[in-house]
Design a protein around this nucleic acid. Structure first.
Lengths: 133, 133
DNA sequence: AGGCGTAATATACTGCGGGGAATAACCCTT
DNA sequence: AAGGGTTATTCCCCGCAGTATATTACGCCT
C-alpha cells in the first residue's frame, strides 16, 4: 500500500497501480414537462444567438432541424416568456433571435454548470481519484 | 411581478404563475473504461448481496441477465480487487457474493449521491424553484 | 410578379442498444 | 448417474429515438 493512500482512509481503492477515478455527471433544470435547460439546449441557444437562424444553428451542431425546433418549442413552452422568437419570411427569408429571457437562461445555466464542475472536482478528490478532467 | 420574486434578483423567471423549476441530474464515478459506479450498478450490487445470485438480482430489477453480467464484469475489470465473486455449480447451483471492496463501493457511492442531492436542492433554491423533489 | 431562404410540419427510414432465447460448462445434492 | 440451478456466452430480433426527405407557408427583395 502506498504511503499517500494510507493517509486517506475513506478512499475507494487500496492502491495497486493507478486507478484514478473521476466523478462525472450531467445536470439539468426541469420544468413542467421534463427537461427545461441542459447542456445541449444551452449550446443550441448560443448558436441561435450567433447565427440568428434555427436552421444554421442546427447545421452547425450537426443536429436535424426537427430536433432543434423541438428543443426550442419545449423551452418556450416551459418559460413564462419565450427564450427564442422566430418568424418565417421577410429579410433573409426569416430568422430567429434570442430574447432577454434567453440570454438570462444561458447565464443561469452556465453558473449552475460551473458550480457543478467544482462540486465534481471536490468530490472526485474525496473519492480517491486525481480530481482532474 | 410578485413581491417574493422582486426580492430574489438572479432568479430564472420574473414570475407569472408557478414555474417551479428543479435541478435534476445524474452522477457517476468513471474509471479506465467509462462508467465504474452509478445508481443502476449500485442497486445491482445491493441486490446481489441480498440474493447471493446474479440471476435473481437481475430478475428482481427486471433486468436481463446479460445486462447484469456485463455490469458486474465492467465493475470488476475497473477495480484493483473485484467487487463481486461468482462461481457456477455447487450448492444451490452456484452463486455470487459481494466482496469487502463491493461493500465499500456501495458506501462510497451512497455518500457521494447524498452529497449530490444536497447540492441539487441548494442550487435549485438559487435557480428559482421550490427546491423540493 | 417571381425568387429566395427561412420557419413549420408530416411522412418514411434506419442504426443500434437492449432484451429474449438458446446453449454449454460447472458441481453439489439426491 | 441423473437432476437442478447457477454462471458464462452466443445469436437473433425488435422498439424507437433521431435522421433524412419532402412539402407548405411566409414575407422582404430585385
Amino acid at each position: 500500500m502506498s504511503d499517500s493512500a494510507r493517509k486517506r482512509p475513506p478512499a475507494l481503492t487500496n492502491a495497486k497501480g493507478p486507478p484514478a477515478y473521476t466523478v462525472q455527471g450531467h445536470i439539468w433544470i426541469e420544468g413542467t414537462e421534463g427537461t427545461f435547460l441542459g447542456v445541449g439546449r444551452i449550446t443550441l441557444l448560443v448558436r441561435i444567438k450567433e447565427f440568428g437562424s434555427i436552421t444554421r444553428a442546427a447545421k452547425s451542431l450537426k443536429m436535424s432541424y426537427r430536433k432543434a425546433w423541438e428543443l426550442v418549442e419545449s423551452m418556450n413552452r416551459q418559460s413564462p416568456t419565450p427564450l427564442v422568437t422566430a418568424c418565417a419570411g421577410g429579410k433573409n427569408g426569416g430568422g430567429a433571435t434570442l430574447t432577454g429571457a434567453g440570454e438570462k437562461a444561458i447565464e443561469t445555466f452556465r453558473k449552475l454548470d460551473s458550480e457543478f464542475k467544482r462540486f465534481r472536482e471536490r468530490e472526485g478528490r474525496r473519492v480517491g481519484g486525481t480530481g482532474k478532467r
